[in-house]
């Protein structure tokens, strides 16, 4: 019997595996849970893009295209809006994954509380969960990219980079949101985040119309939002208007946000789980 071996005296071997291994251990837990729950989310992640592209791209687009698309860079509205919706859904996926599930892992299911008693450290739990979010964002975005391609809205070979661009956008939101979500005692602040963060960004970050259509004073605000960088990056890739400088700027901005989120999370996870 297993427990009989315990009588032998033991001294501890201070051998901790590499951080990446530990994060993957945490990730595998979430994958096991996801295997049980993925069916609930699969239809929304396929039908969402189809609905959105049909309504926005063709419904609204047919109206827009009649009045000329010079302000859009001379492309049909559907080609203009599709990559922006890709970036927006990546943001939403990042926010949604990193909010309630992180909060729940402390307060409801207590996955983090169970896992902290194992060799996993708070930083491993943070990274492992973020890896899972990245996977979810990538899955949703991949479906979206396929739908975009099927609708013929990808007009450049750079479109091959749309998936990583959307993934980066999603992580740029997920990492800071997770760092914040783990500190919360109540879940109500998430509603404020979606209502006063997610929705305005979706509406005013150049998603449905170019930022240049906004009043002059509002334009710098739009350019400062992370979503605008995600939208601009995806749009430039999809339309082939990309330049080295613009890619560098967008990627640097989004990557900085992701890295900042991760490093803050390392601290907030620790102070939350090690009391």
């Amino acid at each position: 019997m297993l427990v009989e071996e315990l009588t032998a005296p033991r001294t501890i071997v201070a051998k901790v595996p590499q951080s990446f291994d530990l994060a993957v251990r945490a990730l595998r837990c979430w994958l096991t849970v996801y295997r049980r729950t993925w069916r609930a989310s699969v239809w929304s992640s396929v039908l969402g893009p189809v609905f959105f592209l049909s309504a926005m791209g063709y419904g609204l687009g047919s109206l827009v295209d009649k009045h000329g698309t010079a302000a859009l860079g001379g492309v049909p509205y559907v080609a203009f809006v599709a990559p922006a919706i890709l970036a927006t859904q990546a943001m939403q996926s990042g926010m949604a994954n990193a909010s309630f599930p992180v909060f729940g892992a402390v307060q409801w299911s207590k996955n983090y509380v169970a896992a902290r008693a194992t060799p996993l450290r708070p930083v491993d739990l943070s990274r492992g969960h973020l890896l899972f979010f990245a996977l979810r964002i990538a899955m949703n975005s991949a479906v979206y990219v396929v739908v975009m391609a099927a609708f013929g809205t990808i007009r450049s070979g750079w479109g091959a980079a749309l998936l990583p661009a959307a993934l980066l956008t999603g992580i740029a939101f997920a990492a800071p949101v997770a760092a914040w979500a783990v500190t919360l005692e109540k879940e109500t602040p998430f509603n404020y985040m979606f209502r006063f963060g997610g929705v305005p960004m979706m509406l005013f970050s150049g998603t449905f119309f170019p930022v240049t259509q906004l009043p002059g004073w509002l334009q710098p605000v739009a350019y400062a939002t992370p979503l605008w960088h995600g939208v601009a990056l995806c749009r430039e890739l999809s339309l082939g208007t990309v330049t080295a400088a613009s890619v560098a700027m967008h990627v640097a901005y989004l990557a900085a946000l992701a890295v900042a989120g991760l490093s803050v999370a390392a601290r907030t996870y620790r102070s939350r789980l090690y009391v």
């Binding site: 033991r10 001294t11 501890i12 201070a14 901790v16 008693a117 194992t118 060799p119 450290r121």
Partner: peptide
């Protein structure tokens, strides 16, 4: 287990 719980927490927890 002969170790410091702050410095070697992960290694100790592996044995708890």
């Amino acid at each position: 287990l002969g170790a410091d719980p702050v410095r070697d927490g992960a290694a100790i927890r592996a044995r708890l």
